[in-house]
């Protein structure tokens, strides 16, 4: 998985690319470290570049959400591909995350 973080003032834009799965390595750890510096922001995860996600990857998003919430930030997932959206649907992720297509 690769990522890019762009500070847009009131919001933070995070682009994810590749696969967010069990092989997610230190990259996600590094992403979490970067995001921990933002307080009271709206963090948008751009998912259109994400080809796959599995439940390990989804678990990482839950961890990110929890970490960000501690700093007063919220998280939304935008533009997931059909297969990724289907996975989010099946796991009822919409009950926890704001998901925009």
């Amino acid at each position: 998985m690769q990522f890019r973080v762009k500070d847009e003032g009131t919001g933070v834009h995070v682009s994810l690319e590749g696969q967010l799965n069990f092989a997610a390595n230190e990259d996600f750890q590094s992403l979490l470290a970067q995001l921990s510096g933002f307080k009271n922001r709206k963090v948008t995860f751009e998912m259109s570049g994400l080809s796959h996600i599995d439940s390990v990857g989804l678990g990482l998003l839950y961890i990110a959400r929890e970490d960000l919430a501690e700093g007063g930030s919220s998280i939304s997932l935008v533009n997931p591909r059909d297969n990724v959206f289907r996975m989010l649907e099946l796991t009822e992720a919409h009950k926890t995350f704001e998901i925009k297509r």
């Binding site: 799965n21 996600i53 390990v56 961890i63 970490d67 289907r86 996975m87």
Partner: peptide
């Protein structure tokens, strides 16, 4: 979706024998 989960289980829990409970916090990850 199913294959991704099954592969993940086979590698992490099956062949590497890593328990589930670790991945609940940043530190755990």
């Amino acid at each position: 979706i199913s294959l991704a989960e099954a592969l993940s289980n086979a590698v992490i829990h099956g062949n590497l024998g890593i328990p589930n409970h670790l991945r609940t916090t940043t530190e755990g990850f």
